[in-house]
Design a protein around this nucleic acid. Structure first.
Lengths: 117, 117
DNA sequence: CTCGGATCTGGAGCGCGCTCCAGGTCAAGG
DNA sequence: CCTTGACCTGGAGCGCGCTCCAGATCCGAG
């Protein structure tokens, strides 16, 4: 199976080396496989998961939220628990969209006031 | 003209006393009128503006952005500059909405995977 | 006039999410 | 071999947005 070096992974994902290590320390990704010498080897699956983490980070979820997400995947949770967790996060994000819509509306009003020119 | 005490203003706006003072120090609001003794007297206009600031903060704009907003209102800027600034902020917020939509989509897919139960 | 609660100021402290650094290790090319 | 550059670890540092604190001042009720 092909693996990626840290540098290649940073390149592919747009996440810095430091941040990749930080996410791993925080339990958001990995643990990442190592070579005999201790260097990290990222798999395609790792890259995919890093993409998910990035997606949620860009949406403004915190590190603790993401840790919750990882925890949810561990088998000790029922399907109901998982869906409840997912719906809860969804609600938080929807509320954030509403906050943005309100702010955009204010901006649009101001722009209109200036004649939209 | 009726004015509000700091406590009443915090109450009305949902912004803490410390944060009101902080916003004023940072130039996001005010300067707020004072009594002879130095106590702040918030007007209805102040309260309204605090509402706007809160709206933008909830949308995730930073303190520096808000300061830019205040600067924009000062007369040295042309209508074109102002509208350009407003449109720019609007674009930033729209991008944020898109990031949220992407994350919500991921959540929906997971929820579907669990059968939406 | 006195008391006490609200308010004042300046500055320290905090949680988050990185980011940077020192000092050392690994491994491919010459 | 030896060099060189990517990588390792642990920990310090940083910018943001508050939040908290001490010590002083104000002012309405009694």
């Amino acid at each position: 199976m092909t693996t990626l070096t840290p540098a290649a992974t940073a390149d592919r994902t747009g996440v810095s080396l430091d941040t990749l290590r930080y996410y791993e320390r925080e339990g958001l990704i990995g643990p990442i496989r190592r070579t005999a010498g201790g260097r990290r080897q990222y798999t395609e699956d790792d890259v995919f998961w890093i993409g998910l983490v990035t997606c949620f980070r860009e949406a403004g979820l915190g590190i603790a939220d993401l840790r919750g997400f990882v925890a949810m995947l561990r088998a000790e949770h029922s399907v109901q628990d998982r869906v409840a967790f997912l719906r809860e996060r969804r609600t938080v994000l929807e509320e954030r969209v509403e906050a943005l819509r309100r702010a955009i509306k204010v901006l649009d009003e101001k722009i209109d006031y200036y004649g939209g020119a």
